[in-house]
């Protein structure tokens, strides 16, 4: 059984009278397997948050269905199994972390002893003990994010839905979140998260989906998506004379000089091979020949351009 499944999920917002409607999400068909980290990518306004809100039952779909852990996303049973971290999580400013977790524990249906046990576990896991009695009002972004994760984990839900969990965090904070997500996956949880930070996504996601203007244009394993083609080939030649260098630079995408030799960047393997042969014929030595595969960012940007 897949952890999260959507079928033809669509959300159209009705504008004020006479101004028509806006389709934020259009026929989303998605399947997130259990115990995987799924990255949900897209530009601002692509429909990521709308999808997440539909999965968390905060919005009603215009059309289509969504299920979480085998239950209709709108049902109480599905919500029992979801831990949700909104983008820039907001909590009651007048509560402290201990009171906050206790409140969400009650909403989750935990009794007093279970809530006390949850506090011990989560305050240790997310390093909340030192700020246990401080009101949320004065919290930094990183502290709020840690508390947000703790709230999402109250009741030990098997599926975590995270909206931009790394947004606005410093490198230390992002690293902490990355490690936490991987640890939670190792504990058997399914993690579905949206992000703008493609480098982080590439490091921790098993699979990704790319959303463009409300439509899912691709989904699959990262290595399969980005291994499909070379992005560029870099050649370094040492001992090349000026005349030959000028000839090779004319066909190259980029040319520069370093201590290692002359660098030439070509768009494809054939051009690079041709340059190596010409360089060696002119007496140069091949120092490096590096085919560079697409990064997730290159792949993402190319899809944005195609769809535009």
């Amino acid at each position: 059984m897949d952890a999260i499944v959507t079928h033809d999920l669509t959300k159209t917002y009705q504008s004020h009278v006479g101004r028509g409607s806006v389709t934020s999400l259009d026929g989303l068909n998605l399947a997130v397997q259990q115990n995987e980290v799924f990255g949900f990518l897209g530009k601002n306004g692509a429909g990521k948050t709308t999808t997440i809100k539909l999965l968390c039952s905060l919005l009603r779909p215009t059309r289509g269905t969504a299920s979480v852990m085998g239950f209709d996303a709108r049902s109480r049973k599905a919500r029992q199994r979801i831990g949700y971290l909104p983008e820039n999580p907001y909590f009651y400013e007048y509560l402290n972390p201990r009171e906050t977790l206790d409140f969400y524990g009650q909403l989750q249906g935990l009794d007093r002893s279970e809530r006390a046990a949850e506090w011990l576990k989560l305050s240790e896991c997310l390093d909340l003990a030192t700020i246990a009695d401080q009101r949320v009002r004065g919290f930094s972004k990183g502290m709020r994010q840690r508390l947000g994760f703790a709230v999402a984990l109250v009741g030990d839900p098997p599926a975590l839905i995270l909206d931009e969990p790394m947004s606005g965090l410093d490198p230390m904070g992002r690293r902490m979140i990355r490690e936490l997500i991987l640890r939670l996956r190792d504990e058997g949880k399914t993690i579905f998260f949206s992000s703008h930070v493609l480098g982080d996504v590439e490091q921790i996601c098993d699979r990704v989906g790319i959303l463009v203007k409300g439509k899912l244009v691709v989904q699959g394993r990262i290595e399969e998506l980005i291994a499909q083609r070379f992005h560029k080939v870099e050649v370094i030649l040492h001992g090349l004379n000026e005349t030959a260098a000028a000839a090779l630079a004319a066909d190259a995408k980029l040319a520069r000089v370093s201590e290692a030799g002359r660098h030439f960047v070509y768009d494809d393997l054939d051009s690079a091979n041709e340059a190596v042969r010409a360089g060696q014929a002119a007496g140069a030595k091949l120092v490096e020949f590096t085919p560079v595969r697409d990064s997730l960012e290159d792949y993402f940007m190319r899809h944005q351009e195609i769809e535009s």
């Binding site: 968390c56 109480r76 919500r79 949700y84 907001y90 909590f91 909403l107």
Partner: peptide, 14 residues
């Protein structure tokens, strides 16, 4: 307005 409702209504409560 304060978005505190997001983390409440996604819980198993009517």
């Amino acid at each position: 307005d304060k978005r505190t409702i997001y983390t409440i209504l996604c819980r198993p409560m009517a």
